[in-house]
């Protein structure tokens, strides 16, 4: 760096650049917020879905699975599991865990009630209907 480019110039560019791009980011976020209703499936955000999200969170499902590609990579993607398997399969699956198959990755038994299972399925159905720009590439997730 040549002698004409001083530390105080660098500092000013730092503050100016940061403020500018942070404001641009806020503007984009604001625009996103107004575009979301058409994409985020909020029309189907029922009390059952809300309750299901809470089951999802308090059992820490994200600690093994991904949801729309985010989370852990130990177990299958669940953002589209409703499409892949359907509600009845999901409930039967959760109830029958753990498989106990030797050496196989194990999922815990959460002892969910029938209502809790229904809520969870409602949440997964809602998640599967979010417009995720055609992700995942195929039904396997």
């Amino acid at each position: 760096m040549s002698g004409t480019f001083t530390k105080s110039m660098a500092r000013n560019i730092f503050y100016g650049g940061t403020v500018f791009f942070f404001l641009l980011f806020l503007a984009l976020s604001f625009d996103t917020n107004s575009a979301l209703p058409a994409r985020d499936n909020r029309a189907n955000l029922t009390p059952a879905v809300e309750a299901g999200k809470k089951i999802w969170e308090t059992r820490n499902c994200i600690g093994c699975h991904t949801l729309l590609g985010e989370g852990a990579y130990f177990a299958p993607e669940l953002g589209n599991v409703y499409t892949r398997r359907g509600g009845d399969f999901i409930k039967a699956w959760i109830k029958s865990q753990p498989t106990g198959a030797p050496g196989r990755r194990q999922m815990p038994q959460f002892n969910l009630t029938d209502k809790e299972l229904d809520d969870l399925v409602a949440f997964l159905k809602y998640a599967s209907e979010i417009n995720s720009a055609k992700w995942p590439p195929n039904v396997e997730g």
Binding site: D31, L36, L68, N131, S132, A133
Partner: peptide, 9 residues
């Protein structure tokens, strides 16, 4: 991180 989570394209 906003490609596939329901945010605009």
């Amino acid at each position: 991180h906003y490609y596939w989570i329901g945010t605009p394209e």
